[in-house]
C-alpha cells in the first residue's frame, strides 16, 4: 500500500512540470497585446512600447519561460498587470470561493446521482427506472448557462425563495458560527450557494446516475449479492451496503473527473451568479489579457485537478482492497 502511494506521489512531479510548461506555451499563442489593452483605445504607440518593455513582454519566449519557471518553483507567480498585486495573493484570496462551490456541487451531484442510479437499478425496466433515466437524459442535455439563468428566474425572481447573486459567509466559518449558537450566517450561506451549486451539479449528477445504474445492474447479478441474500440480509442492506460499495468502484474515478468539469463550469456559473471566485476572475483576466494572472489561474486549476486525480487514485486503493496488492 505504501509503495503504491509513494509511486503515485512521485508521478505527480513530472506531471506538474509538464503543466507549467504547457500552460506557458499555450498562453503565448493568444493574440492581443496586454500593454495596449491596459492603456486603452486612446493610447499612443510609444506609450504601448514603453509599457511592453516595463512588463518584460519584449523578451524572447524561451527566456520568458525560463524566468517564469524559476519563479514558480519559488512560489512566485508573477505580478498581475492590471491589479498591480502578486498573482499568488490574488489567487489565494479567491480560490476558497471556487473550491467551496465545486466541492458543494460535487457533493450534490454525487448524492443525487448515486441515489437516483441505485433507485433506478432496484427495479430495472420499471416506471421509476424509466423516469430516472429520462431525468438523467434531460440533465445531461441542459447547458449550464441556460440552466443557471432558468434556476435564477424560477427561484430568485419568481418565487423569491433564494437570493439571485452573491455569496454569504464562507461555509466553514458559517458552520463554526452555527455550532457556536448562531445559525443565521449558515442559513444565509446555504441559500446563496444553492442555485450556483445546483446549476453546476445537474450535469454531473445525471452522468453519475447513469453510470451508477449500469454498475449496480452488473453488480446485482454477481454471486456475492446472492450470498448476502442467502444470509438473510435485508434487501435494503443488500443494495446499499453490499452492492453499492462494489458498484461505486468505477464511479469513483468518474466523480474525480467530474470535479475537473465542475471547475471549468464554475467559470460560467460564477459570472452569472456573481460568485466571487477564480472563475469570475478568469473571464476578466482573459478579456484584459492579463497574462501573468491567466497563467497563474490556469496553473492553479490544472494543479487542483491533478491533485484530485491523485486523491481519487489513492481513494481507490482504500475502497478496493484488491488494488493494494499491486
Amino acid at each position: 500500500m505504501t509503495a503504491y502511494v509513494i509511486r503515485r506521489l512521485l508521478l505527480f512531479v513530472p506531471m506538474a512540470i509538464g503543466i507549467v510548461i504547457v500552460t506557458f506555451c499555450l498562453l503565448l499563442l493568444i493574440p492581443g497585446d496586454p500593454a495596449a489593452v491596459l492603456l486603452g483605445q486612446e493610447a499612443t504607440p510609444e506609450a504601448i512600447a514603453t509599457l511592453r518593455r516595463t512588463l518584460g513582454l519584449d523578451q524572447p519566449a524561451y527566456i520568458q519561460l525560463f524566468i517564469y519557471f524559476g519563479n514558480v518553483v519559488q512560489g512566485d507567480l508573477g505580478q498581475s498587470i492590471f491589479q498591480n498585486a502578486p498573482v499568488s495573493e490574488i489567487i489565494l484570496g479567491r480560490i476558497g470561493a471556487t473550491l467551496e462551490l465545486a466541492i458543494v456541487a460535487l457533493t450534490m451531484s454525487a448524492a443525487i446521482g448515486i441515489t437516483l442510479g441505485v433507485i433506478a437499478a432496484m427495479r430495472p425496466g420499471g416506471i421509476v427506472d424509466a423516469s430516472a433515466m429520462v431525468l438523467a437524459q434531460l440533465g445531461i442535455s441542459m447547458p449550464v448557462y441556460w440552466l443557471a439563468l432558468l434556476l435564477m428566474l424560477a427561484f430568485a425572481v419568481m418565487l423569491g425563495w433564494l437570493p439571485a447573486i452573491g455569496r454569504g459567509e464562507p461555509l466553514l466559518s458559517a458552520f463554526g458560527m452555527a455550532i457556536a449558537g448562531n445559525p443565521a450566517p449558515l442559513l444565509d450561506s446555504l441559500s446563496h450557494i444553492a442555485l450556483p451549486a445546483a446549476s453546476l451539479a445537474v450535469n454531473s449528477a445525471a452522468i453519475i446516475s447513469r453510470l451508477v445504474r449500469a454498475s449496480m445492474l452488473e453488480v446485482l447479478n454477481e454471486d456475492f449479492v446472492r450470498t448476502a441474500r442467502a444470509k438473510g440480509v435485508r434487501r435494503r442492506q443488500v443494495i446499499w451496503k453490499h452492492a453499492l460499495r462494489n458498484a461505486l468502484l468505477p464511479v469513483i474515478s468518474v466523480i474525480g473527473l467530474r470535479f475537473g468539469a465542475l471547475l471549468g463550469g464554475a467559470i460560467l456559473t460564477e459570472t452569472i451568479f456573481a460568485w466571487p471566485g477564480l472563475g469570475q476572475l478568469t473571464i476578466a483576466a482573459i478579456s484584459q489579457r492579463d497574462l501573468p494572472l491567466i497563467q497563474g489561474i490556469v496553473l492553479t486549476f490544472a494543479m487542483i485537478f491533478a491533485t484530485v486525480t491523485l486523491i481519487v487514485d489513492l481513494l481507490y486503493a482504500v475502497v478496493d482492497p484488491r488494488i493494494r496488492l499491486k
Binding site: L149, L153, V157, T271, F273, A274
Partner: peptide, 13 residues
C-alpha cells in the same frame, strides 16, 4: 454581475 441577463434577473429578484 458580468452577464447582462443575470444582472437583469438579479435586479428583478
Amino acid at each position: 454581475v458580468g452577464d447582462n441577463a443575470a444582472r437583469a434577473q438579479a435586479f428583478e429578484a
